[in-house]
Design a binder for these strands. Structure first.
Length: 246
DNA sequence: AAGCTCTTCAACCGCAATCAC
DNA sequence: TGTGATTGCGGTTGAAGAGCT
């Protein structure tokens, strides 16, 4: 049996909308409203499925939509609401006049997620990665923790690699209005001095999780980034090499 | 200049919720 | 109250343009 299709796919055009189609749809809706999407394409003289018309109208043609860049305050709102509601895009978009759920979702996936990751914050839990690593390391017995930590590193390997090998993240600067505005300082509730501890916490957490001797690099020695790179890959594949000698 | 990769965002898909009868 | 139709939602895809080598 299977699902009943929402429309006859053979007779329906797909892909990008033309200005002519937009005009037809807009003028039809201006005169008749948006009742019964199934009939709208037929009545408006469009070879489109009703679902496609609804999407085009709600995401692009509606006169009350904003089409420009997201402002800093809009971004702050999205991040805050996402930390509470998760991927409930329509709920989040409802708090942003003129923005659609699709807009918010796209902006989150293409910009905000990366922004948070780059700041060392997990975009799913909204916690700093260092905290997640520490939680993994401290809440489980070593044998299970080792496997879970491996899995976690697989997920976060890009961010961890960034932390360990690329330029240090400047938490002070990241808290500034240049990135997320003043409110963001309150949103991430941790202190600038955590910068110093981030790498150490990750190393400690994994050493602990792996049941290794917690041999630490003396804090006055610089972290060898090439060794760090191989270390993080090694951790991904469950072999944790000895930390570089001091 | 050409080809490749990356990013963006409009559009599609399928499922779930809601509505109408 | 049950059932089919419609609408809403979130995940995913792919075309187009930008950037890089």
């Amino acid at each position: 049996m299977g699902r009943i299709p929402c429309c006859e796919k053979d007779n329906v055009k797909r892909g990008q909308w033309t200005p002519e189609e937009d005009n037809k749809l807009s003028s039809y809706i201006a005169q008749n409203g948006t009742r019964n999407w199934r009939l709208i394409p037929k009545n408006a003289g469009l070879q489109r499925c009703g679902k496609s018309c609804r999407l085009r109208w709600t995401n692009y043609l509606r006169p009350d939509l904003k089409h420009g860049q997201f402002s800093d305050s809009e971004e702050q709102t999205i991040v805050k609401l996402h930390s509470v509601f998760g991927n409930r895009w329509s709920l989040i978009a409802a708090q942003l006049p003129g923005r659609t759920d699709n807009d918010v979702k796209n902006h989150w996936n293409t910009k905000l997620k990366k922004k948070l990751s780059g700041m060392g914050i997990d975009p799913v839990t909204h916690k700093p990665f260092s905290h997640l690593m520490a939680e993994i390391a401290t809440t489980l017995a070593p044998p299970q923790a080792a496997h879970l930590a491996e899995a976690a590193l697989g997920c976060f390997k890009d961010e961890v690699l960034h932390l360990l090998t690329k330029k240090p993240i400047n938490f002070q600067a990241q808290h500034s209005t240049a990135v997320m505005g003043n409110d963001f300082t309150n949103y991430i509730n941790y202190r600038p001095e955590e910068k110093e501890g981030t790498v150490e916490k990750i190393k400690l957490g994994f050493l602990k999780a792996m049941g290794e001797e917690t041999e630490m690099i003396p804090s006055n020695k610089p972290w060898d980034s090439s060794a760090a790179a191989s270390t993080s890959f090694a951790m991904q594949y469950s072999v944790l090499p000895t930390m570089p000698p001091g």
